[in-house]
């Protein structure tokens, strides 16, 4: 095999799979949205002028942003504790975070169906201790979707940040301390800036993951709390409005890609290690 071609021949099958079965289909989906006889942007005009569609978009944004914010705070504190733990304890804690992460989305969402249901465990418990006298309807609300989403993404955040925090050399905090910095100041001025790129990576993963999720809003939100993922599915497979579904898909692609691009630019700029 000719020398020059070898790297390309080895890469060709994987490239073909991605280009033929991801590139082509996704581009065709995006192209469909511009094919309206009333003008290339007619579908988008419909989308952005429809009160219902915008409600779904904003709801999805809101759920994704709240999930990201809570996951950042919870994940950072937990990762901080995990990173300081003694070696044996640390590996146990990492196992405890990996286990839910590798358990499927359906199983993890189902758990919240059992907990938050009308005859669920939380209602049983609240009735039993006498806080409430009637079971609460907690399922199929925005809150139930957000709780399940946070549950879904906190492990991802913990694992991302443990890696980042462990990578911060001990010398730096030692140096800060020997130069007279109090632990709080050393944390704010040394650890936090170094953790920012990791926080950004984690936030992007959580935001795009929750923005595009399907199973969790389907199970815990239902028809009343439709999000972009469930809305896309409903348009495509229930009402068979493929052009409408493609427009939803295009909006999802634009939102996730812009988030990834902007945030990775910011991450590169604020990285103190990149000097």
């Amino acid at each position: 095999m000719p020398r020059k071609l070898r790297p390309w021949l080895l890469s060709a099958p994987a490239l073909l799979l991605v280009l033929l079965f991801l590139g082509l289909p996704v581009l065709s989906t995006l192209a469909t949205t511009f094919g309206d006889p009333k003008g290339p942007l007619a579908q988008y005009a419909t989308f952005f002028n429809s009160r219902f569609r915008m409600t779904v978009l904003w709801r999805t944004m809101e759920v994704a942003l709240i999930t990201t914010a809570v996951s950042v705070v919870v994940g950072f504190i937990t990762a901080w504790v995990v990173a300081q733990a003694p070696a044996r304890m640390k590996s146990l804690l990492i196992i405890a975070a990996v286990f839910p992460l590798l358990t499927g989305v359906v199983v993890r969402s189902f758990a919240w169906l059992v907990i938050l249901g009308k005859n669920g465990i939380l209602n049983d418990f609240l009735l039993w201790i006498g806080v409430i006298s009637e079971p609460l309807s907690m399922l199929y609300t925005k809150g139930s979707v957000i709780v399940a989403m946070i549950y879904l993404f906190v492990p991802l955040m913990i694992l991302t940040l443990v890696g980042v925090l462990e990578g911060i050399p001990q010398d730096l905090t030692d140096a800060a301390a020997s130069l007279g910095a109090k632990p709080g100041a050393a944390f704010r001025q040394v650890v936090l800036p170094l953790a920012v790129p990791g926080l950004i990576v984690g936030s992007v993963l959580v935001f795009t993951g929750s923005f595009t999720s399907y199973a969790t809003p389907q199970l815990l939100g239902g028809e009343g709390q439709m999000m972009m993922g469930t809305f896309l599915y409903q348009r495509a497979m229930v009402t068979f409005d493929w052009v409408g579904a493609s427009t939803i898909a295009a909006v999802m692609v634009v939102v996730t890609l812009t988030t990834v691009l902007i945030m990775s630019k910011i991450a590169r700029r604020v990285n103190p290690m990149a000097g």
Binding site: S11, A14, L15, V18, L19, F21, L22, G23, L24, P25, V26, S28, T29, T208, F211, T212, Y214, G229, L232, Y233, A236, W242, A245, S246, A249, M252, V253, T256, L257, V260
Partner: peptide, 23 residues
């Protein structure tokens, strides 16, 4: 080239599923 192989993570899975079904 390395970025092309991670496109399946970058493109929302639900969009990929829909597009695969359609096309």
């Amino acid at each position: 080239l390395g970025n092309i192989y991670v496109l399946p993570i970058l493109i929302p899975e639900i969009v990929l599923g829909f597009s695969l079904m359609k096309t």
